[in-house]
C-alpha cells in the first residue's frame, strides 16, 4: 500500500486534563494514484486526520506509513492545500509558487517549473500580481499550483473549495479532475460536501463523529466526467446520507442535551 494508516488514535487534553477523543482506531489503506475523499460531519476529526498525514499534528497512537516510511514531520513528498489559500501576501504569484523550489534548484529552473504549474491552473496572465489582487478562486488555484510545483507524491486537500461560491467551485472541480488525470497524484481530499466527494473521488471514506471513526468505505466506479451520470450520483448520495443521518442526529441531540443541562 502506498499510504498505510494503522490503528491511528488522537486525543486532546482539555484544561482539566480530560482526554477528548478525536480519532479512534483509524485503519485506512490507499493505493498510489487514487483520489480518495474523506467525508464527514463537522467535528469528526477529518481535518485532524489530514493534518497528521501532513505531519503537522502528532498522533497519540498508531502509525502512518507513506511508501513504507513512517510520517513524523512535514515533507515535500506531501503537498497541502488548505481551506484558505495561505499565500504569502508579501510576494507575487510567481514567487509564491517558486517558494518551495528555492533551495533545490537554480532560480531559472524554479521559475520555469513554477510557470508550468501556473499554466496548468490557467493563471499565466497573473504572474506578477499580488495575492490581495486576486479573487478567492484564483488564490486557491495559485495554492494548488504551489503545492504541485514541488512535485509531491501526495496532494492533501483540506476543504479547499469550502469558502468559494458555487460556480467557482464547479469550475475548480473540473480543473482539479483534469490536473489529477494529467499528473496522476495520489489525492486525499477532505470535504463535508457529499456531492463534491462523489463527483471527484475513486473512493469515499465516510467518517462518523464522537469519536471519529471510519463508518464505511465506498468505491465510486462511474466514468469521468461524471456530470452525465446524475441519476447514479443521486443514488450514491442517498446511500451515503443514510450513514451520515445517524451521525448528524447524534451531533444535534448532543447539542440539545447540552442546552437542557444548562
Amino acid at each position: 500500500m502506498f499510504i498505510s494508516i494503522n490503528q491511528l488514535n488522537k486525543h486532546f487534553l482539555d484544561k482539566n486534563q480530560h482526554a477528548s477523543i478525536v480519532l479512534k482506531d483509524i485503519d485506512l489503506q490507499i493505493e498510489k494514484g487514487e483520489f480518495v475523499s474523506i467525508l464527514g460531519p463537522s467535528g469528526c476529526g477529518k481535518s485532524t486526520l489530514l493534518s497528521i498525514v501532513a505531519g503537522l499534528t502528532e498522533a497519540t497512537g498508531g502509525e502512518i506509513l507513506v511508501d513504507g516510511k513512517e510520517v513524523k514531520k512535514p515533507g515535500k513528498d506531501r503537498g497541502m492545500v488548505f481551506q484558505e489559500a495561505a499565500l504569502f501576501p508579501w510576494i507575487n504569484v510567481l514567487e509564491n509558487v517558486m517558494f518551495p523550489l528555492k533551495k533545490e534548484m537554480s532560480k531559472k529552473q524554479a521559475n520555469e517549473q513554477a510557470k508550468t504549474y501556473l499554466k496548468m491552473v490557467q493563471l499565466t496572465n497573473y504572474l506578477d500580481h499580488y495575492p490581495h489582487e486576486l479573487s478567492g478562486g484564483m488564490q486557491q488555484r495559485v495554492a494548488i499550483a504551489r503545492a504541485l510545483a514541488m512535485d509531491p507524491e501526495i496532494l492533501l486537500m483540506d476543504e479547499p473549495f469550502g469558502a468559494l461560491d458555487e460556480q467557482t467551485r464547479t469550475r475548480l472541480h473540473r480543473q482539479l479532475e483534469d490536473i489529477w488525470i494529467e499528473t496522476k497524484k495520489t489525492v486525499l481530499f477532505v470535504t463535508h460536501s457529499i456531492s463534491e466527494s462523489i463527483k471527484l473521488s475513486d473512493r469515499i471514506i465516510v467518517m462518523g463523529t464522537q469519536p471519529g471513526t471510519v463508518l464505511t468505505d465506498i468505491k465510486i466506479d462511474l466514468p469521468r466526467p461524471r456530470d452525465h451520470h446524475k441519476e447514479e450520483m443521486l443514488k450514491i448520495e442517498d446511500h451515503i446520507m443514510s450513514y451520515l443521518k445517524k451521525e448528524i442526529d447524534k451531533v444535534v441531540s448532543e447539542e440539545l442535551n447540552h442546552e437542557t443541562n444548562l
Binding site: 501532513a54 505531519g55 503537522l56 514531520k73 512535514p74 515533507g75 515535500k76 506531501r78 503537498g79 497541502m80 488548505f82 484558505e84 495561505a86 504569502f88 508579501w90 510576494i91 517558494f99 518551495p100 528555492k102 533551495k103 504551489r146 503545492a147 514541488m150 492533501l156
Partner: peptide, 23 residues
Amino acid sequence: LYIKAAQTMGSSGIDLFIRVIFP
C-alpha cells in the same frame, strides 16, 4: 496558517524565520 503552509513546503528553523515569520 502561514507557518503550517511553509512547513508543508519543507521550510523550518532559520529558513522559516527569514522567509516567512519575519516578512
